[in-house]
Simulated scan of single mutants.
Amino acid sequence: MGDLYRTVLNEAASPADLYAFVSRDSLIQLWPSMWLPRAVRRAWEERFPQLRSAPRRAA
């Protein structure tokens, strides 16, 4: 599921794409392990501070 979320966050053409494919709870759970470009990660964390506080998983 992480690959789907990463693609949607990077490629969404409209907010409707986000609403259709992204679950808040799943995003928070997956966030620490998702690879995203720095600018994308920063933009999302600025808009949704709870993502910054999501527990980091050990690699």
Score class of each variant (00 low, 15 high):
Pro37Arg: 14
Ala39Phe: 08
Ala39His: 10
Arg52Pro: 02
Glu45Gly: 07
Gln50Thr: 06
Val8Pro: 00
Pro37Tyr: 13
Gln50Ile: 10
Leu4Val: 09
Gln50Asp: 06
Glu45Arg: 01
Ala54Glu: 12
Ser14Thr: 02
Ala43Arg: 03
Ala59Gln: 05
Leu4Arg: 15
Asp17Ser: 09
Val22Gly: 00
Ala58Phe: 14
Glu46Lys: 02
Arg56His: 13
Leu30Ile: 00
Phe48Leu: 10
Leu4Gly: 06
Leu18Trp: 13
Arg38Glu: 04
Met1Cys: 04
Ser33Trp: 10
Asp25Trp: 14
Pro32Arg: 13
Pro32Met: 06
Tyr19Thr: 09
Asp25Phe: 09
Val22Pro: 01
Glu46Arg: 09
Pro15Glu: 08
Ser26Met: 15
Ala58Ile: 00
Val40Cys: 11
Ala13Pro: 00
Leu30Asp: 07
Ala20Trp: 08
Leu27Arg: 08
Asp3Asn: 14
Tyr5Pro: 08
Ala59Glu: 05
Arg24Gly: 05
Ala12Gln: 09
Met34Asn: 03
Ser23Tyr: 05
Asp17His: 15
Arg38Tyr: 07
Ser14Leu: 02
Ser53Ile: 15
Ala16Pro: 04
Arg47Cys: 01
Met1Trp: 15
Leu9Pro: 03
Ser33Lys: 14
Arg42Glu: 09
Tyr5Gln: 02
Met34Glu: 05
Arg24Phe: 11
Pro32Tyr: 11
Arg41Ile: 04
Arg6Met: 09
Arg52Phe: 01
Arg24Pro: 02
Glu11Lys: 04
Arg52Gln: 06
Ser14Phe: 10
Ser26Asn: 12
Glu45Tyr: 04
Met34Ala: 08
Phe48Glu: 09
Ile28Leu: 10
Arg41Ser: 02
Glu45Asp: 04
Asp17Glu: 12
Arg41Cys: 03
Pro49Asn: 09
Val8Tyr: 11
Trp31Val: 01
Phe48Ile: 06
Tyr5Met: 13
Ile28Cys: 11
Met1Ser: 10
Pro32His: 12
Val40Gln: 13
Ser14Arg: 07
Asp3His: 12
Arg57Pro: 00
Trp44Ala: 00
Ala59Phe: 13
Arg41Ala: 12
Gln50Gly: 02
Asn10Ser: 14
Arg52Glu: 04
Leu27His: 13
Asp3Ala: 15
Ser33Pro: 02
Ser53Lys: 15
Ala16Ile: 05
Pro55Gly: 12
Ser26Lys: 15
Ala39Leu: 14
Ala13Ser: 06
Ala43Asn: 03
Met1Phe: 12
Ser26Thr: 07
Phe48Asp: 05
Ile28Tyr: 08
Ala58Gln: 14
Glu46Gly: 00
Ala20Tyr: 11
Leu9Tyr: 04
Met34Ser: 00
Tyr5Asn: 03
Val8Gln: 10
Ala54Phe: 09
Ser53Gln: 15
Asp3Lys: 15
Gln50Cys: 08
Pro37Thr: 06
Arg38Asn: 11
Phe21Val: 00
Pro37Asp: 13
Ala43Trp: 04
Ala16Lys: 07
Met1Leu: 10
Arg47Asn: 02
Arg41Lys: 15
Arg41Thr: 06
Trp35Phe: 15
Gly2Arg: 09
Arg24Asn: 02
Ser23Asp: 10
Leu36His: 12
Val40Met: 11
Ser53Asn: 15
Glu45Asn: 04
Ile28Val: 08
Asp3Ile: 05
